[in-house]
């Protein structure tokens, strides 16, 4: 009796452990392959150069800067809105209130909507409705805002990453002890003064974490910007909100599927992927570190 039972036990441990090991190995393999394929082509010239000769040579500087501007604009909108929402959910409405619950449901739903649908929304709302409306009202119908650009792409991306910011800031706000709020209120501070002077300073780490996670997500998403602003090739950096822009992820997609010579540009593709991967890694790990820091404080 006992021997087969022991074997079954070992089998179960083996199967579950095997899955875990397979997962780890897969991740390591993907990373290894991309590093191996890309490291040789990585150089300062590659990072700070423009694509040349029909994008078969040269660097990816415009794509890096385009990504930078995209996530910058996105954070300028998404982080404040997400922070304010998290504050409202935790400081103004109770866990059980109808308003709070419906906003929470909306945030969860927002987190689950496919990114391509955000792209469609950007096209239908920002470009066609807002942009088209602006053009009709102020531009005499001439096409300026009613076409894909970095502003609409950033706004679309801000919406996509909003749940990331909210969840992360909420976690930080929750870790601020209730006693501190009461201490402030008992001194005759108003609710807003308490939030501004006690809760927010204590939540800065969480806000930063949220911003980083959102940026990491935003830098990696391609589907929402496919038709809201990303450009195939634009050697100039965007200098107006109505400009289109190059973007790292989109560049990888373009280079690996539509490059004039897919085989010859393999090194460029790998190196671009490596740059994107390094970027998201750095961002994710700083977020993990900050969160760890935050949790340690919460425990204490």
């Amino acid at each position: 009796m006992s021997i087969p039972k022991k074997w079954v036990g070992r089998g179960v441990a083996l199967v579950t452990g095997g899955s875990a090991i397979a997962t780890v190995l897969t991740v390591l393999a993907i990373m290894g392959i991309i590093v191996y394929g890309g490291i040789g082509h990585l150089s300062w010239d590659f990072i700070f150069g423009s694509p040349e000769k029909g994008m078969t040579e040269g660097g990816i500087y415009p794509a890096i800067m385009g990504t930078f501007f995209l996530v910058l604009l996105m954070s300028l909108v998404g982080v404040p809105v997400g922070t304010v929402t998290a504050i409202y959910l935790n400081e103004y409405v109770g866990q059980t209130s109808k308003v709070g619950r419906s906003i929470r449901f909306a945030v969860n739903t927002l987190a689950g909507i496919p990114s391509i649908v955000f792209g469609l929304f950007g096209l239908g709302f920002f470009i066609s409705f807002m942009g088209g409306g602006i053009d009709k009202a102020f531009n005499g119908g001439e096409l300026l805002w009613g076409q894909p650009n970095i502003l609409w792409a950033s706004l679309t991306m801000a919406l996509l990453t909003l749940p990331v910011v909210i969840v992360s800031v909420e976690e930080a706000i929750k870790s601020v002890p209730r006693e501190l709020r009461e201490g402030s209120l008992a001194l005759g501070a108003t609710r807003l003064e308490t939030i501004w002077k006690v809760v927010l300073p204590q939540s800065m780490t969480g806000i930063l974490t949220g911003a980083i996670l959102a940026i990491s997500r935003g830098a990696g998403e391609v589907a929402p910007i496919l038709f809201t602003g990303a450009a195939y090739f634009l050697p100039e950096l965007p200098d107006a909100l109505t400009d289109q822009f190059m973007e790292l992820g989109y560049h990888i997609y373009i280079m690996s599927t539509q490059s004039p010579d897919v085989e010859a540009t393999k090194p460029i593709q790998f190196a671009t992927t490596l740059v994107l991967l390094l970027l998201t890694f750095t961002l994710n790990f700083s977020a993990i570190f900050l969160r760890w820091h935050l949790r340690r404080r919460a425990i204490r």
């Binding site: 780890v24 897969t26 993907i30 391609v222 589907a223 992820g249 990888i252 994107l276 991967l277 993990i288």
Partner: peptide, 23 residues
């Protein structure tokens, strides 16, 4: 060990996974 590995995996941009699959 699993924790960071899964975080890394979740952090793979989908275009990177697509690229890996494609090439």
């Amino acid at each position: 060990l699993m924790k960071p590995v899964i975080e890394i995996m979740a952090g793979f941009p989908s275009v990177v996974i697509g690229f890996f699959a494609l090439t």
